[in-house]
Design a protein around this nucleic acid. Structure first.
Length: 373
DNA sequence: ACTGCCGGGGC
DNA sequence: GCCCCGGCAGT
């Protein structure tokens, strides 16, 4: 038994807790930059146009990457994508392995518009749409402390980690001695500073009919409006987004499903959304909402529909919450059992004999956290 | 039969 | 809260 225990500890620490991310980031930066240069020199002009857009259509890719139990060190896993993919220093190191999303997010933050590209990117270049690309950059990522009664919001992951470490965890040592626990206590909030709508409308020849479907819309009923988002984000945004800040899109990531985090709701809970009031409204929601159950958008880059996906990167995170909400309105809320996810889960991957390697959720026979699909 | 995981426990 | 597991439903 003790052996198992020990094993478990070892495992979890090696898997979930990235150490010393800070310094490595810095160092990597240089390496990456250098690599970048080399890469760009050796690649065809086509491939190397920089405009990052990490989200665009490659959800699948980083998602998968995140799943790897050892995502921290599994750079090899990314081998299929262009080398420059490593340009996001923080991507590999981020938070926990179980959490498949942060990598991307953190990347978009600290790994500034550096030239991250991959095959998809290259592919989408064929369509050469500078506009949608740019848009990515208008997303602001903030980090919010989830500690009870502390709504502190900082703009950097490091900042929020330090905050949590010192204020809540009572550790004084600097990031070096962190075991990564802080990751569990903050979440990322994305806000879109520019109008998503205009981008979309200009981008995609969507017919009005597409806009109108109320169901996809997130605006809540007047009465309940903002109750979720508003009340939860007191610190950063106490305003009902749909009204006062129509162009601001909040995407919150409830990363650690089984941790203390009370899910931060995304605007798209709507049952209401009866009127497609503004086109602005019509869009955002469908974006963040529909995505979750959509099939991999990857191939679609360039079509009217897909840009949507790429753009609002929040999606997968809220899946768990969103999905239920989404599915319920249309159908009889009752007996709808989420269709079984098809990916391999801990149980299958590690087998019964390695039960201690499963994610907690799997161990508890709950929806797998590690291999979310 | 196997697998994922919901719902409902026990502590 | 954490943890377990009966049992259902999809494969």
């Amino acid at each position: 038994v003790s052996l198992l225990e020990q094993k478990r500890k070892v495992v979890s620490s090696s898997i979930d807790v990235p150490h010393a991310r800070k310094s490595e980031e810095e160092v990597d930066m240089d390496k990456v930059t250098a690599a970048m240069v080399l890469t760009s020199l050796s690649t065809s002009p086509l491939v190397r146009s920089p405009p990052v857009k990490m989200g665009e259509g490659l959800n699948g890719s980083w998602k998968d990457g995140g799943f790897m139990p050892s995502s921290y060190s599994s750079s090899g896993y990314w081998s299929w994508s262009a080398p420059s993919d490593h340009s996001n220093p923080s991507t590999p190191s981020p938070p926990l392995s179980a959490d498949s999303f942060k990598p991307f997010r953190a990347g978009s933050l600290s790994g500034p518009p550096d030239d991250a590209l991959d095959e998809q990117d290259a592919g989408s270049l064929l369509f050469d749409e500078p506009i949608p690309r740019k848009r990515k950059n208008s997303m602001k990522v903030m980090f919010k402390c989830l500690w009870k009664n502390c709504g502190k919001v900082l703009s950097t992951a490091a900042g929020i980690q330090r905050h949590i470490r010192t204020v809540h965890l009572g550790r004084n040592c600097d990031s070096e001695c962190s075991d990564g626990e802080e990751d569990f206590y903050y979440t990322e909030i994305k806000l879109n500073t520019d109008s998503v709508a205009d981008g979309l409308s200009s981008l995609s020849p969507v017919s009005p009919s597409v806009l109108s479907p109320p169901p996809s819309f997130e605006h809540r009923k007047p009465d309940t409006s903002g109750s979720t988002a508003g009340s939860r984000n007191e610190s950063s945004s106490s305003t009902p987004l749909s009204r006062s800040a129509p162009s601001t899109l909040y995407l919150v990531h409830a990363d650690h499903a089984y941790q203390a985090t009370a899910p931060v709701n995304i605007p798209c809970t709507s049952t209401a959304c009866s009127t497609p009031s503004t086109h602005t409204a019509g869009f955002t929601p469908s974006t963040s909402c529909s995505i979750s159950w959509q099939s991999p958008p990857v191939t679609f880059t360039g079509t009217p529909a897909s840009p949507t996906h790429g753009r609002t990167q929040g999606f997968s995170e809220q899946r768990s919450q969103t999905i239920t909400v989404l599915s319920s309105p249309p159908r009889a809320a009752g007996s709808l059992r989420k269709s079984r996810g098809e990916g391999k889960k801990c149980r299958k991957v590690y087998g019964m004999e390695n039960r201690d390697m499963w994610c907690t959720a799997c161990r508890w026979k709950k929806a797998c956290q590690r291999f979310v699909d």
